[in-house]
């Protein structure tokens, strides 16, 4: 709770953007999370409908994005940016349209904040 509120304050004080930490994070443990910044459709064949492909790649790539407030507002977790605008390719995975999606994302390392206790204070 307390951490959540602290974060809340930080957010209010204008740190609305995600903290942009050093690019070279040495400590690799923790999970990787993406915030999607862009998407493109790469058709498999020339006949594939580019507009539908673009829209479906939007859904496909955006589905890989975290809602970062879901990390920042909980407390006890931290997102460290490890890469900006990294491109990666995923299959569109749609039975009605072949091809791939090229997603562009900021990459974050999700870590437990160990500096402060994540336990709520006693009696709270």
């Amino acid at each position: 709770m307390r951490n959540k509120a602290t974060l809340h304050i930080l957010l209010l004080l204008g740190m609305l953007t995600l903290p942009a930490f050093a690019e070279d994070v040495k400590d690799p443990e923790g999970e990787i999370a993406y915030v999607i910044n862009d998407y493109r459709y790469a058709p498999a064949e020339t006949g594939d409908d580019p507009d539908s492909g673009h829209a479906l790649c939007g859904t496909r790539c955006n589905a890989l994005s975290i809602d970062y407030l879901n990390y920042l507002m909980v407390g006890g977790w931290e997102l460290r940016k490890v890469a900006t605008n990294r491109e990666f390719t995923v299959p569109l995975d749609n039975p009605f349209l072949k091809g791939n999606c090229i997603c562009t994302a900021d990459e974050y390392l999700v870590k437990v904040i160990t500096r402060n206790s994540t336990k709520p204070p006693a009696g709270n």
Binding site: D49, S52, A55, L56, T59, N94, F96, L97
Partner: peptide
């Protein structure tokens, strides 16, 4: 809604 997003392809 999800299906609506790909209806043109169906």
């Amino acid at each position: 809604r999800y299906l609506h997003g790909m209806v043109d392809l169906i």
